[in-house]
Nucleic acid binder design. Structure first.
Lengths: 190, 190
DNA sequence: ACATCATGTGTACTCATGTACACAAGAGCG
DNA sequence: CGCTCTTGTGTACATGAGTACACATGATGT
């Protein structure tokens, strides 16, 4: 009997009228950015990641910049959600401090891919006003979340401290231990 | 009488045997990176900035990566020198704190171009081990400078705090005022 | 003064990219 | 069942990139 070999490129044929494809393309773009960086993110690369023909890219997006903007917006929004959840669960100052420590340890240092995304965004934002707005909205949400538990000045400073700690920890040869993170945050907040 | 118009392209002809050209190319590369980002840094762009023929690039450097590596190395070294100078002048803990505040205010937030360079480096380092080493050497020198006045743990934390403050200040819509910087550093160090 | 050789330059080749656009295909309706 | 219009695809084109390499040019030793 014949073994029914089905090639991807044949399957692709049958996938006309695919609502939500735009969404999947944005997710694919995020994958590519995380893996290859903005510099390595091309129409073709995204299309390949989403298993979609090249023409689909120009059909759904006016330009590559538009794809990047949407991708970063989505990522920033997801990251801010995590921030919100962690801090939203806290009821008093002490648990808020614990939440910050856990956030840094588990969500930020724990997944360096997110830091890569953040830094890629910062660089892209340096030359693209639309992305600058995304960055600022993201930072604003972090600060708002922190302001639920700390005064505005403290919130701003802690936000910056978190960023610096994560950045240096991930870039360094010896990452910070959970104890060191706790030490730094508590020293600042207590 | 004839006005002696001299075109640049004619002048270039006479500039054979130019020792130190390699150095100037690296500086030109730094300019281009700061202005157009790593993404916009090409052989042709650097050659134009240095007013040098394209062929000169491949003559002096084996690849574009080599140019980037040398450029970032030079920048990191210069930045670390500033760090060293500022902190080397301090004699006691209090003046060291003042030095840190001045460093942030005048040298870091004061010239956002340097921050752009740093972030560009971080991104580039994410995919290039040679640049990762440059980053780490740079961070090490900052920490060493700080350790002349503070214990290692504090040095590391302050180093991270500085990075975070500068990053957030420059990216934010409202930059931190000198007073806010002073407040954040003193809160942490006193 | 001339030959030789390291140094420096112009140009051309190949390749990947963004984008446009002519075409295919299927959904929805009469 | 066919007609039409939105939705989706394949391909081709212009552009700018890195790099190679044949050639020019000036320094240097005799």
């Amino acid at each position: 009997m014949m073994c029914t070999l089905v090639r991807m490129s044949d399957l692709k044929r049958t996938r006309r009228h695919d609502p939500g494809r735009r969404d999947r393309l944005i997710d694919a773009a995020l994958e590519v950015i995380a893996e290859r960086g903005v510099a390595g993110t091309t129409h073709r690369e995204i299309a390949r990641a989403a298993d979609v023909p090249l023409g689909s890219m120009t059909y759904h997006f006016a330009s590559l910049d538009e794809v990047l903007a949407e991708a970063f917006t989505r990522h920033a929004s997801a990251a801010a959600d995590v921030f919100d959840e962690r801090l939203g669960a806290a009821t008093d100052r002490d648990t808020a401090i614990e939440a910050v420590i856990q956030l840094i340890r588990d969500d930020l240092i724990g997944s360096p891919k997110d830091l890569v995304m953040a830094v890629e965004l910062y660089v892209a934002a340096a030359r693209n006003p639309a992305l600058r707005a995304v960055t600022q909205a993201w930072m604003q949400r972090s600060r708002d979340a922190l302001e639920r538990h700390f005064d505005p000045t403290t919130a701003r400073e802690v936000d910056a401290l978190i960023e610096g700690l994560v950045l240096h920890s991930v870039l360094s040869t010896d990452p910070m231990t959970p104890e060191q993170i706790r030490h730094a945050v508590e020293r600042y907040l207590r």
